[in-house]
Amino acid sequence: MEETLIILKPDCMKKRVAGEVISRFEKAGFEIVASKVMQLDGPILREHYAHVADKPFFPEIEEFMSSRPVMPMILRGEDVIAKVRDLLGPTNSQEAAKGTIRGDLGTDMMQNVVHASDSPEAAADEKKRFFPEL
């Protein structure tokens, strides 16, 4: 069984749709093996977004992602990484089809409700970053 990390982002928490998002993952057959609510800060965000931390738009990402608590979770299931990304739809919510999580609940490229690992390697790194106790 494969595992992935997702983060219910600040817009998800603000809109109070976390339950709906979690329900969609559970209905797809995925098991929640860890979850918590946490406030993100500069150091963890710079590590998580290291690939864009030197870009001019990074301060906007940092401001958004630290604007309210988020909910990281580890999901487990067969081919969970690809299947979760299919459930989410494209990163840009404006391009996501209705019926996908981002198409139904997202707003744009940043306020797209959920972050999800994009590969087994990323999932392993992100699980360690957000759940070092496991």
Rank of each mutant, 00 (worst) to 15 (best):
D11I: 05
K15W: 08
R16I: 03
V17H: 10
G19M: 04
G19W: 01
E20Q: 13
V21P: 00
I22A: 01
R24K: 14
F25G: 01
E26D: 11
K27N: 13
A28F: 03
F30M: 11
E31S: 13
I32S: 04
A34E: 15
A34H: 15
S35F: 14
K36T: 13
K36P: 00
K36Y: 02
V37N: 14
M38S: 10
M38I: 15
Q39S: 14
L40H: 01
L40M: 14
D41A: 13
D41F: 11
G42S: 15
P43L: 07
P43W: 10
P43V: 07
I44S: 10
I44T: 15
I44P: 10
H48L: 05
H48M: 07
A50H: 13
H51V: 14
H51E: 15
H51F: 12
V52D: 08
A53S: 15
D54R: 11
P56Y: 11
F57A: 07
F58R: 03
P59W: 11
E62V: 12
E62A: 15
E62T: 09
E63N: 14
M65C: 10
S66W: 09
S67D: 13
P69L: 09
P69H: 06
P69G: 08
V70A: 10
M73L: 13
M73C: 09
I74C: 11
I74E: 07
L75M: 02
L75F: 06
R76N: 10
G77A: 06
E78G: 07
E78H: 10
D79H: 10
D79I: 04
I81R: 01
I81S: 04
I81Y: 01
A82P: 00
K83T: 07
K83G: 04
R85T: 00
R85C: 00
D86K: 10
D86V: 08
D86C: 05
L87H: 09
L88D: 00
L88R: 00
G89S: 00
G89E: 00
P90H: 03
P90L: 03
P90K: 02
P90E: 04
T91S: 00
